[in-house]
């Protein structure tokens, strides 16, 4: 549990107690097809004769044409939609703190599993570094920890291709992205997922020891060096760009297709976890 925040277990318990729509506890009966509840999925469970209490709209008319009897099809209940969790491991995450970023992503991954949600974990930078599916979730942290164990970092941020790959190969329609989103041309509205949860890990440059004069910055991803006067104009410009960046994500969130939170180092992560869970089940 070293990589998973200690408060996560309590948060999950509190959320399950508080939320009436909490997912049912996993049991052997729920996993056995014989006992699975009928529902509205496309997974056929049974065909039986029409009864007075059945919905006439579910009558199989083709079968009636062949047999002159009324039959209805029963399908399994649709499985709860899982979540793809994409974790940015690009070199720029160093600014926020790689270990801190891993801790946040691992905590979120574990909480999703502990709530019984199917999860697909993805780690990416300029390529897909690792993938793990947890179709049934689970409270054991071992799988989550093994996913993050030895996970390499470095390279550029290629979020668009990572999102496309995840959407293409996963059946889940929701994605939680933990990243700094520092990819030129990435638009939060262009996510291929039907609902995207953006968690931006950000360290403000002004909180660093910048001094008041010339500033030399090394970009971790490109290796480029930027020497610039760190004066009032540069500070103002930086703040303006930061504000615009946030407004892009907040605007996308306002459309309802996404949710956005910015997290600074050493800030209270429990608020982030809780608001994410509430949004997930909203």
């Amino acid at each position: 549990m070293s990589l998973i925040d200690a408060d996560c277990a309590a948060l999950v318990r509190a959320f399950q107690r508080r939320t009436p729509r909490r997912p049912p506890a996993s049991s052997q009966a729920s996993r056995d097809p014989m006992f699975r509840r009928a529902g509205s999925s496309f997974d056929l469970k049974n065909i039986r004769e029409y009864g007075p209490s059945d919905d006439p709209r579910r009558i199989d008319w083709k079968l009636m044409g062949r047999t002159d009897r009324l039959f209805v099809k029963e399908f399994y209940e649709e499985e709860r939609d899982g979540v793809c969790l994409l974790v940015d491991r690009s070199a720029s995450m160093e600014s926020f703190g790689e270990e801190e970023a891993s801790r946040i992503a691992a905590s979120l991954a574990w909480m999703l599993g502990a709530l019984g949600l199917p999860t697909s974990l993805w780690a990416f930078s300029d390529r897909i570094l690792r993938r793990m599916d947890r179709p049934r979730g689970g409270t054991s942290p071992a799988e989550v920890l093994s996913f993050f164990s030895g996970l390499e970092s470095g390279g550029r941020t290629e979020l668009r291709s990572a999102l496309a790959s995840a959407r293409k190969t996963s059946r889940y329609r929701r994605a939680l992205i933990v990243s700094d989103f520092l990819e030129s041309g990435f638009a939060p509205r262009s996510s291929p997922f039907s609902r995207s949860f953006y968690v931006r890990l950000h360290r403000d440059l002004e909180t660093m020891d910048t001094g008041n004069s010339e500033l030399e910055l090394l970009d971790q991803e490109s290796g480029a060096r930027l020497r610039m006067p760190w004066d009032a104009a540069a500070r103002s410009d930086y703040r303006e760009r930061e504000r615009g960046f946030d407004e892009d994500f907040s605007g996308a969130a306002a459309s309802g297709r996404s949710w956005y939170r910015r997290l600074e180092p050493d800030s209270d992560r429990r608020l982030l976890y809780w608001s994410f869970l509430e949004e997930l089940y909203a």
Binding site: L215, L218, A234, D237
Partner: peptide, 22 residues
């Protein structure tokens, strides 16, 4: 210390000025 330590930072350039001011 000023020359060697304080003023050189590792930070992404995405939100910084790239114009000719420097």
């Amino acid at each position: 210390l000023n020359l060697r330590l304080s003023r050189k930072l590792r930070y992404p350039h995405h939100l910084l000025v790239h114009d000719a001011r420097r």
